[in-house]
Design a binder for these strands. Structure first.
Length: 279
DNA sequence: CATGAGCGC
């Protein structure tokens, strides 16, 4: 802006030329008046910014029916509006100046995390569902209904929960269990997304897409999910991907067949992926 | 070489 050479003429000059008769000043009074006003505008513009010129208008002498009255708006005849500023906010909700008492109460419970995640079991820095003590602790603060009552408070058959605890030690997701149970063809309602048998595929070219991997691994079994690790900014692949199968057996076959295979002049490396939380 | 993202009020 500052680099632009100041033009010799401004638009106000053009106005001046347009409004001002090429001949000598006409006799008509209103034209004369227009010229005066134009020159006054020009002076104001040359002297200050526009918003200042707006303030300048308040000092102008009035004309017409208001002629003779003192400068500035007359509240009796003029409505002075206030500036309306539009604020944009996410969710189309106006920013709340003060939280309600309930919100304050709730936020205090989670205050330790300061907006972060706080485990309801051990107050750790993780989700409750990921708490390492999730399986060893009975429930939330022990206040959780242990056995015999379900979450609705109605009695439940006690035999349901007891046998599963006898598996002992580490929890193994159904899809990762070796033996196929009677209910193997479990209708996946909503999809068991976390416990899918997942392969980590590394050494893929950076332009490999999800569909490429789906094609590549689709022949071994139903591919439940494909994720390609990408750079957050550029979107370019980072050379690794996750391929989740619905059946662990198929995943293992795919791993055995595809590991060491060439793809895009690179040698694929296919391993079991580690669950994200326990790394 | 390389291990995602979202759950949470």
């Amino acid at each position: 802006m500052a680099g632009i050479a100041t033009p010799k003429t401004s638009w106000a000059d053009d106005v001046d030329e347009l409004e001002q008769p090429k001949t000598q000043p006409k006799t008509e009074d209103f034209i004369d008046e227009n010229v005066k006003i134009t020159r006054k505008i020009k002076r104001v513009l040359e002297k200050s910014l526009v918003d200042h010129s707006v303030a300048e208008r308040a000092t102008w002498t009035k004309f017409g029916q208001e002629k003779g009255n003192k400068p500035g708006p007359d509240r009796a005849t003029t409505t002075v509006g206030e500036n309306v500023t539009l604020k944009l906010s996410a969710g189309n909700k106006s920013s709340e100046p003060e939280p309600s008492a309930e919100q304050t109460l709730k936020s205090n419970l989670v205050k330790a995390g300061a907006g972060k995640v706080t485990c309801r079991l051990c107050k750790g820095d993780h989700f409750t569902a990921k708490c390492p003590y999730k399986d060893s602790l009975p429930g939330l603060d022990g206040a959780e209904t242990p056995v015999g009552l379900d979450d609705t408070g109605t009695p439940a058959e006690p035999a349901a929960a007891a046998p599963s605890a006898s598996t002992g030690g580490k929890y193994v997701p159904p899809s990762m269990r070796g033996g196929r149970g009677p209910g193997e063809s479990m209708s996946r309602p909503g999809g068991s997304r976390d416990d899918l048998p997942t392969l980590r595929v590394t050494n893929i070219s950076e332009d490999t897409q999800e569909n490429d991997l789906r094609e590549l691994f689709g022949g071994f079994g139903r591919v439940a999910r494909v994720y390609v690790g990408r750079d957050r900014e550029t979107g370019a692949g980072k050379g690794f991907a996750f391929v989740s199968f619905e059946d662990k057996i198929m995943a293992q076959k795919a791993m055995e067949k595809m590991h060491g295979r060439g793809y895009d002049n690179l040698i694929l490396n296919v391993q079991w992926s580690q669950p994200r939380e326990q790394r």
